[in-house]
């Protein structure tokens, strides 16, 4: 394909960041083959908030990992702004993650012996266009806790540090794997609010995967997955505020 970067999508008029075409992923465990993804195709648009819903084992994490460049498809293509990720070698994928991707995990994965601010600095250190770590912590409302170690923060606070860490690199896309999975409702809502704010203020595309259908209401589009396939895609014409979500 020789089209210019970010081809406009006919239906929404927005630019496509990711074009996922017939991606399959299978794992070979001894003699059995496990199909994690069977033929998934999807476009992800610039600056949208996308929620991928599905039960565990539906392939949503695999899809996210492939988009994020920490896993590779068995067949099919993932185009990131027209570049085929499957052509990347390990180092190229690392550089891709470094420049373009921000990851947020269910279990935060902060470095336990670095303070909140140092955890953010760690990401900033390898990025050319990084934010000031204090600014990143400001985005998640944690300036006052910046000198605390992860063990001194609550789960919700740790997740916000993780988001600040992901955002500090100014990634094009923020990939969140069950970001509220380990949190109670109120902490979870604070985290989702932060993600919504980041989506609004930084122009980053935000992809959230979850099995909590309520969260889908805050998205521009909701992708339903089961059994390694994309079952349907629902477009929310009106995004719900995080505030209004209850579960």
């Amino acid at each position: 394909m020789n089209q210019p970067a970010a081809e406009p999508d006919a239906s929404s008029g927005r630019n496509v960041v990711f074009r996922i075409e017939h991606v399959r992923k299978e794992y070979h465990v001894e003699d059995t083959v496990v199909y994690a993804l069977r033929d998934a195709s999807l476009d992800i648009f610039e600056n949208e908030c996308l929620v991928i819903l599905g039960p565990s084992g539906s392939g949503k994490s695999t899809l996210l990992n492939i988009i994020g460049g920490i896993d590779t498809p068995s067949s099919g293509r993932v185009l990131f702004r027209d570049t085929d990720l499957s052509r990347y070698d390990r180092n190229a994928l690392t550089m891709y993650r470094r420049v373009n991707i921000g990851f947020v995990f269910q279990f935060y994965n902060l470095i336990p012996n670095l303070t909140a601010r140092e955890n953010v600095e760690m990401a900033a250190e390898i990025s050319k266009s990084a934010m000031d770590p204090n600014e990143a912590l400001g985005l998640v409302n944690l300036e006052l806790r910046k000198d605390h170690f992860p063990s001194q923060l609550s789960g919700g606070e740790q997740q916000r540090v993780a988001i600040a860490r992901a955002v500090a690199k100014r990634p094009d896309i923020l990939l969140c794997d069950e970001p509220t999975g380990a949190l109670d409702v109120s902490s979870g809502k604070v985290v989702l609010q932060v993600l919504a704010d980041v989506n609004r203020t930084t122009n980053a595309t935000v992809v959230i995967i979850t099995h909590n259908a309520i969260i889908g209401n805050m998205a521009d589009r909701v992708v339903h997955m089961t059994d390694g396939r994309i079952r349907d895609i629902v477009v929310n014409h009106e995004r719900a505020t995080v505030h209004s979500l209850e579960w």
Binding site: T94, R97, R98, I101, N109, L110, M122, I126, A166, K169
Partner: peptide
């Protein structure tokens, strides 16, 4: 290994 894996995901090279 989890914190090192997190670094790798963040875009740190194996050498880093």
């Amino acid at each position: 290994h989890r914190e090192l894996a997190a670094l790798r995901v963040m875009g740190y090279l194996p050498s880093e």
